[in-house]
Every structure is written in structure tokens, then in C-alpha cells.
Design a protein around this nucleic acid. Sequence first.
DNA 1: GTCTATACGACGATAGAC
DNA 2: GTCTATCGTCGTATAGAC
Lengths: 184, 184
Amino acid sequence: MARSTIDDDTLTDAIARVFSRFGFAGASIDRLSEETGLGRASLYHRYPGGKDEMVSAIIDRATVRYGKALAPAFVDGPPYARAQEVAKGLNEYYNNGTQSCLIVALSVSDGDGQSEGGRCVEAWADALMLIALDAGMSSVEADAAVLDAIAAIEGGLVIAATSGKTGAYERAIATLPERLTGGR
Amino acid sequence: MARSTIDDDTLTDAIARVFSRFGFAGASIDRLSEETGLGRASLYHRYPGGKDEMVSAIIDRATVRYGKALAPAFVDGPPYARAQEVAKGLNEYYNNGTQSCLIVALSVSDGDGQSEGGRCVEAWADALMLIALDAGMSSVEADAAVLDAIAAIEGGLVIAATSGKTGAYERAIATLPERLTGGR
DNA sequence: GTCTATACGACGATAGAC
DNA sequence: GTCTATCGTCGTATAGAC
């Protein structure tokens, strides 16, 4: 395989930005071509399966990046500090709230993103749950705290995308450790 | 103008459901035709401006319905009770969390929904702000409380749409009065 | 007011030259 | 690996009969 003029990860990230912003149906090949700087045919060379394969690729990469952000949830240590690490990682992933959420974008519009989005939320919830349980919450408390924390972040991203106000997102990130541990 | 076989409001609501679910680009005329039971040409008879005009119509109607839900914010009375009324109205609007949010759907995908979504959030925030200020919050406190409350609801809707779990949404609705008043 | 038929354009995808 | 050119399809929108 000869060298590409654009790095694989860089390409995938550029494509992910377009899908995140415009959804599956709104992410036209022309737009993808413009954003990536590659011609239409080159995109098909990289992703013979077309848009469906692009979605698979960006979800795979998102899963890896999510995984890294969530990794501190799986190690031993004080719950509050682990939650802080996770919050930091998520904030990097969402680029301080300027990056609209792929899950949301793919849940709107058709494509095969519906089920993928659900599984992604599950993985996220499972990781945070570990922290909440370690902090001494009951399973019912932890379940609620975790989903509320995720909802706060997702909601903050939506507000940021529609109105440009990032305050709600920033507070959602900042209060994540408190939400997951009750301060413990 | 002769009688329609489908009521104007019913038609608009059906169209709104399609746009809410699939976004602007994903809401094809075929899908709209199927959902409304009207032929493609009939849709253009009702909305000569095509999809753009449909979006205008559903936003106008959403604004009216939002207005009704938010009306209790503008009357005199104890802040907590007013917030409860607003929460009840919003919950009806979102059909207990089963109705995905139009704002979110139009912010994804292109169309002219971007700015409309922002203005809609503004209107929502302005109404809730009145309650928070009446409850004795400072403007800074109120601004944060209001945006966080909206984010919680929007986030809850996103979680409900992607994973089917409505818990976060339900708690966001239930805790709205507390969030806006601090219990006052 | 709604339907069938159709024009026209945009988009997804492919072939072949470089 | 990337580009130009092109084909088929789907989707938007319109025309005209009922």
C-alpha cells in the first residue's frame, strides 16, 4: 500500500466532524470531499463501502477515544480523583464543548447509527457506574446519578451547538466528580 | 378554499414528527408523504415553498405550543408552583419523553434550523429566568440554573432517544421546580 | 384538494487515466 | 493514491387530469 497524502486518523477525524455536524443524510460526499481535501473518488478508494463504511470507521475510532477517556474508571484509586480524570478526558474528547456529539448526530437522520448510539451510551454508563458504586452508592442511586451526569453533558453540548453558550456544558464537566461520588 | 381531508394542525404535527426524528436532510418527501398519508404533490399544494416552508410552519406551531407551556412563567404567583406548571406543560409537549426534540434535530443536518433553534432556546431561557429571579436568585445564579435545567431536559431527551431509558428525562422534569427556585 | 406522470437536479457510486 | 469524467438513482419540485 503506497503512502497516503493524508493520514488515516486525520482523515477519519475530519469525516467524523462532518457527520457530527450534519448527520448521516446531511453529510454529502461533496461536503466530505471539501472538508477532507480529498476528491470524491479518493474517498471511495479509502472507504469502498461508501458512507456506511465511513460511519463504521468513525465509530470505531470514537470507541477507542472514548475508551481512553473512560480508562481511569477501571483502575483502582479514590473515586473522586478517578472521576476527575474521566471528566478531563471527556472534555478533551469534546474539545471544550465545541465538538458536537456524534451520538446525537447519528441518532437523528437515518443510517445505522441508531443502535450504535445506544451501545455507546451503555459503555459510557457502565464505566461511570464503577466509580459511583466504588463511592458507596447503591445500584439504584448510581444508575440515576450516572444517567443524569451523562444527560447533563449531552444537554450541555446541545445548548452549546444551538446557542453557542458553553456554560451548561462546562458546569456539567466540572460537577461530574461530585455527581458520581456525592463528594465521597 | 375547499375542505382538506386532513386537518391543518394534524398535518403540521405529523410533519414535525418526521423532521424531529430524521432532521432536515433525512426528512424526504417520500417519508413525509408516507407519514401524512398525502401524496407528494398534495404536500406541495399545502406548502408551495417545499421543505423550507414546512420547517417554518412546524417552528411556528412549536413556538405557539412552547408559549403555552411557558405561560405560567409570566403570571404572578409563587415561583415553585409556577415552575411546576411549566414542567407539566413541557412534559406534555415532549409527550413524556417519547417525542424527540425538534431543536436538536434541526441543529443537526443543514436547513435554516440552526438560528431558529438558538432563538427557541433563548425564549425558553428567558421564561424560566423570570421564575428563578422571582425566587430570589441573583442574575448570575439564575442564568446558570436555567441553562442547567434546560440542558438536563435536552440531555434526557437525547438519552431517551438513543437508549430508550427515560429516567434521566423524567428526573429532569421532576426536579425543574427545585432547580429554578432552590426550594424557595 | 388530491392524484398520476414527469422534468430536473443533486447525490452516491464507479471506471479509467495519471 | 488521487484525479476527471460519467452512470444510475433518489429526491425535489412541477404540470395537468380528476
